[in-house]
Amino acid sequence: MTFPPLREELRGLEPYGAPQLDVPVQLNVNENPYPPSDAVVADVATAVAEATRTLNRYPDREFVELRTALAGYLGHGVTPEQVWAANGSNEVMLQLLQAFGGPGRSALSFAPTYSMYPEYARDSNTAWVQGKREDDFGLDLDRARAVVLEQRPSVVLLPSPNNPTGTALPPEAVTVLCEAVGDEGIVVVDEAYGEFRREGTPSALELLPRHRNLVVSRTMSKAFALAGARLGYLAADPAICDAIRVVRLPYHLSAVTQAVALAALRHAPELLGRVDQLRQERDLTVSWLREQGLQVADSDANFCLFGTYPDRHAVWRGLLDRGVLIREVGPDGWLRVSIGTAPEMAAFKQALAETMAATRAETMAGTEEGQP
């Protein structure tokens, strides 16, 4: 027996994580580049100080005040009984797989998609089934429905906007798959980047009254610029929230986490004030990339996927050598860049232009050397 006595299917695997490198421009993990204001910092500090006075006691296990505030923020008639929260949307997803997946059950998504989904399935002993997206990274609804009817998954994971492509789903896609799954499972629409949707792109929250098997998840890490606080949440039928309680760890949301999230929600208009600016910067970036002759996926998120390159790692390395860190993720040949401040995006464009020029020069030199 090899020590440590790890589960056999976990041997040799590397833990998930994007590179954490100290470079001037970090555009690789889809963070909001704008830190909280002094007013938000002061309110959070006061809230944490008050919570600290009670740290000798366990926090509110049901986090009623936070669920009420989250319901108010979501709108669409969502009630506190329909809200659940955990330490980041990652824990929300894992709890869903623990409750509705497991041995003898399967989870399904459509690739390319968020690379953590199969890990949630693995960690909960849930079989992983992967369908395919179309060339434009959308879904052919007839094919998607056929895959669901054939595989009968217990959990369908639909990120909208999708990561890493930024593609948003139309409402009819959610309805088709909810109806295909029926009462045998749940459909999770992961709206981690939902606040960045382009105008006219609806939220799946609008469909909650129609589909009791629908779950819509969100996070405060992106639009709220609160990645360091680790607060994810969902809206669903109260029966789904009650089911998650069975698998949650006791007192899983600390008093400090609850206090920080409540303070942030009090400042929601201010914290979300940069969203329009980031949308505009995203659209400018998409246009610029296309002007360079690159393919770019239509994006409703705070990032964009672009390519394609015969050797994407060389391009990624060229950017890193120039002080810009992006993400080497997605289908072969593609790269993903998070949307930062205007100066950060200017640095990215300059670094990419220089890298592409250097690559072209090397290619031409190699071609000339090979000539007789």
Rank of each mutant, 00 (worst) to 15 (best):
G12S: 05
L13R: 14
L13I: 05
L13F: 03
E14I: 05
P15A: 05
G17S: 12
P19Y: 03
L21Q: 05
V23D: 12
V23C: 13
V25I: 08
Q26F: 09
L27Y: 03
N28K: 08
N28G: 13
V29A: 13
N32W: 02
N32Y: 02
P33H: 07
Y34C: 04
P35Y: 04
P36D: 15
S37G: 14
D38W: 05
A39N: 13
A42R: 15
A42T: 10
A42S: 15
D43N: 04
D43W: 00
V44E: 09
A45M: 07
A51K: 03
R57C: 14
P59A: 10
D60L: 04
R61Y: 12
E62L: 12
F63D: 04
V64W: 01
E65I: 08
R67C: 13
A69H: 03
G72K: 05
G72W: 00
G72I: 00
L74N: 00
H76Y: 11
H76M: 03
G77M: 10
T79Y: 05
T79R: 15
P80S: 04
P80H: 05
E81P: 02
V83L: 04
W84V: 02
A85V: 12
A86S: 15
N87W: 09
G88H: 07
N90K: 07
N90L: 08
V92C: 04
Q95S: 14
L96R: 05
L96C: 09
L96I: 08
L97V: 05
A99Y: 01
G101Q: 02
G101C: 02
G102R: 03
G102T: 10
G104K: 12
G104T: 06
G104Q: 11
R105T: 11
S106C: 06
A107E: 02
L108K: 02
S109T: 09
S109Y: 03
F110K: 01
A111I: 00
Y114A: 12
S115C: 06
E119W: 06
E119Q: 09
Y120P: 01
